[in-house]
Structure formats: C-alpha cells, structure tokens
C-alpha cells in the first residue's frame, strides 16, 4: 500500500514535469513560429516584387499591384520618435523624483497611478485622443505655429502614444535607478557633492545603459501600437513632411484594410508582409534593448 502510494506520487510528478516541458517548448518556439508563419504568408508578394521595391517605394495602389510600404514605415518612425521626445524627459524626471526625492506617500500614490495608466486599453486612449488631443492640436497648438489643420495629425498621434508609453518606460527606469548600489551614491554624497550632482554624475552615468534600453523598449512598444494611433493620426497614405501632417503608420495600415484584403491574395500577402516588417523591427529593438539591459544587470 505504502509503495503504491509512492508510485502514484512519482507518476504524478513525472506527468506534471512532461506537461511543463511541452509548454516550455511551445512557448520557446512561438517567436520563431510567428516569424515563420508571417514569412510564408508574405511569400506570394515577395515572388512578384523584390523586397527592396516593397520597402523603399511609396506607391500604395493594391488594385494595380503596387505595394510600396515606405510612407507607412516613415510615418511609423516619425510618430514613434516624436512620442519618445515627449515621453523621455517626463519619464526621466519622474523616475529620478520617485527614486531619489519622493516621500513614502508619494510613492503610494504613484504606484497605482502608473499601474492604472498602463492598464487602460488602447481604444480608450484613442477615444480620449479624439475627445481631447485632436481639438487641442487643431485649436491651440497648430495656430501657435500658424498652421491650419483638422487636428488629426502626427503630433496628435505622438501625444497619445507618449502618454501610453510613459508608464511602460517609467517602470523600467525606476527599476534601473533602484538597482544602482547605494554605496555609490553615499560615496558621492560623502565627498561633498550635492544631491543633484550625485544624480547627474553618478546615477545618470551609472544608469546610462539602462536608460538607453528603457528607451529602446519604449520605441518597440510605441512602434507596434495600433488602435489608439490609428484613431487620431489621420491615415493619409503619403510621406509626411511635418508634424502637422496626417500620417499612416504601419499597424494602422494592417488594421484598416483587413476587411478588403480577403478578396485579393496579393493584397493579403502584402498586409502579412507589413506585419512581418513590423514584427522584425520591433524584435530588433527589443532584442538590442534586452541584451543591453541584461549586460547592465550583470555588471
């Protein structure tokens, strides 16, 4: 009886372990599978047109077989860079404030705030963008520069996107600054540096790789954001020349045309290729930042 019980327990352990290993294998293969699936689907397009042709021309006319993604890629890049320019100083300043100066109760308030901000669905950000940011751009910001616009511009997209990635970057930055050993800051303070000098010369310098990778992760997050940006950015398929021009980012292209693509195989293939391009760009940024951050942590 005793022995039997032991056998059962061992068997149960084995079963559990095999299930765990199966899952682990699937999850590890998933990124590969994602890339491969998208690649196979975009094969049809790549057979007809060269990859350079698709990536570096800007004519998008699915009906006559022209699939140039350049304007979409550039739009995506511009929105992303712009949003990072807005988010980056805010995140850095707040992260320094929260890790170096803030009192306990400020942290107690800010933690839920950051969590909720991170949890708000992107469609809500989009609605908010239409309600608040688009009018703000068209009524106040654009006239400041003497521009007339409906408000559905790259700038509106960037502002919405910036608010969306702030909690994300902020969380990583806080972790980066927390991981800097206190001995370092104490040494600096003991040598007579002010708090601010310590931050400038010790914390920012020591945390520099971490800051860069946090921004990299922010870029990859911003690059793939779909619905919120799609709702406010205007969606005009040409290369944008200024921040008060409408843009048409890559994810918006995919999301907007899913209905029409079914009828034309080439069209569908082109959209799958756009998803692949998106996937590859995001992966590269992610990979680089993650490697940088692991290096930073082990140092």
């Amino acid at each position: 009886m005793m022995l039997q019980n032991r056998e059962i327990r061992r068997l149960r352990d084995r079963l559990n372990v095999s299930w765990m290993i199966v899952i682990l294998a699937i999850v590890l293969f998933l990124p590969l599978l994602l890339g491969l699936g998208l690649f196979v689907q975009s094969g049809l397009l790549l057979k007809e047109l060269s990859i350079w042709n698709v990536l570096f021309t800007s004519q998008w006319m699915p009906m006559s077989g022209k699939f140039g993604l350049l304007s979409f890629i550039l739009s995506s890049l511009m929105v992303t860079v712009l949003s990072l320019l807005i988010a980056c100083p805010v995140c850095l300043l707040t992260a320094i404030h929260l890790t170096q100066y803030a009192k306990r109760y400020v942290l107690n308030i800010m933690h839920p705030v950051i969590d909720i901000l991170a949890g708000i669905p992107s469609v809500i950000y989009g609605v908010w963008g239409i309600l608040a940011v688009v009018p703000l751009v068209s009524k106040y910001i654009a006239p400041l520069f003497g521009v007339q616009t409906s408000g559905y511009t790259l700038l509106a997209g960037a502002i919405v996107l910036a608010i969306m990635i702030i909690p994300f970057i902020l969380n990583i930055l806080i972790e980066v600054f927390r991981s800097i050993p206190t001995e370092l800051t104490e040494a600096s303070l003991a040598l007579g540096a002010t708090r601010w000098q310590t931050i400038k010369f010790v914390i920012l310098r020591k945390g520099f790789p971490g800051i860069i990778s946090a921004l990299g992760l922010g870029i990859s997050r911003a690059f793939g954001e779909t619905i919120a940006v799609l709702m406010v950015v205007g969606n005009v398929a040409k290369i944008p020349t200024g921040i008060f021009q409408p843009g048409y980012p890559l994810p918006a292209l995919i999301a907007n045309n899913y209905g029409e693509m079914m009828s034309i195989p080439m069209y569908q293939s082109a959209l799958m290729f756009s998803a692949l391009v998106l996937f590859v760009i995001v992966m590269l940024f992610n990979l680089a930042s993650r490697i940088a951050i692991t290096k930073f942590e082990t140092k």
Binding site: G224, T226, A275, L278
Partner: peptide, 11 residues
Amino acid sequence: WGVPSIVYGAF
C-alpha cells in the same frame, strides 16, 4: 511580451 498585439492578430 514585446510583440505588438496586431502581429498576434495577423498570426
């Protein structure tokens, strides 16, 4: 974790 949800959608 970093893969955009639209890519999951396409997949």
